[in-house]
Nucleic acid binder design. Structure first.
Length: 198
DNA sequence: ACTCCGATTGGCT
DNA sequence: GCCAATCGGAGTA
């Protein structure tokens, strides 16, 4: 299974974010198993990043970001969407990585092979699309992704008799860009903290 | 108690 | 490409 551990997430968000590309996000429940390959992430830094939820200080909504790395920060926005982040750095350094897109590889509830490639891609293409596909909601906030059996990130996993392995993403395959939807963050909006597989 | 607005999406033009 | 939908958190009163 080779799950990513607390040490992996305990580093700086801008280090963790590109290294998550190609890894496998796994969602398990008693009813279903889904696997997606992470293909886009964004780093949100601590107190020196105006775009980060933690910038204005600790509140009930963002308090998980102030704790240990490896926990999920799931929050609700635009009145209808849940977004998934993984907390990074040590306790007291409130930072995290937003998972923006995954490539769906397996879904025990859907015959992906029979779907159009564009429809498959659409399932995980967008931070709110992937949480809807994987049924990740507010009840997953504060979940420890390094120990949970419902949501975790691995280099290899076997489901339904099929083995999946993470993709090795070369540095030259990683695209860099400013983060989406953070224009209010002034000069921090320009920082190239979005990472994606070209 | 009341207001403002967002780490977005999808449907319509 | 534009814009409405939709609601909880946070700040203000």
């Amino acid at each position: 299974m080779n799950r990513l551990d607390r040490d992996f997430f305990s580093r700086e968000a801008q280090i963790v974010a590109p290294q998550l590309l190609g890894k496998l996000l796994v969602r398990k429940s008693t009813k279903s198993i889904k696997v997606g390959m992470i293909k886009e992430t964004e780093a949100y830094l601590g107190s020196d990043d105006r775009a980060s939820h933690s910038y204005a200080g600790k509140t009930k909504r963002n308090e998980v970001m102030f704790g240990e790395a490896g926990f999920a920060h799931v929050y609700f926005t635009y009145g209808m969407h849940w977004l998934l982040n993984i907390v990074t750095e040590k306790a007291g350094s409130p930072s995290g990585v937003l998972i923006r897109a995954v490539e769906p590889l397996y879904d025990s509830e859907m015959a992906l092979k029979e779907m159009k490639p564009s429809d498959i891609k659409r399932l995980g293409d967008g931070p709110a699309r992937l949480t809807r596909w994987m049924k990740i909601g507010g009840d997953y906030n504060k979940l420890d992704v390094t120990t949970s059996n419902n949501l975790f990130i691995v280099d290899a996993v076997e489901v339904g008799g099929i083995s999946f392995t993470s993709y090795k993403i070369r540095k030259s395959q990683i695209g860099l860009a400013p983060r989406i939807g953070v224009s209010y963050a002034q000069e921090d909006a320009e920082r190239p903290l979005r990472f994606f597989v070209k």
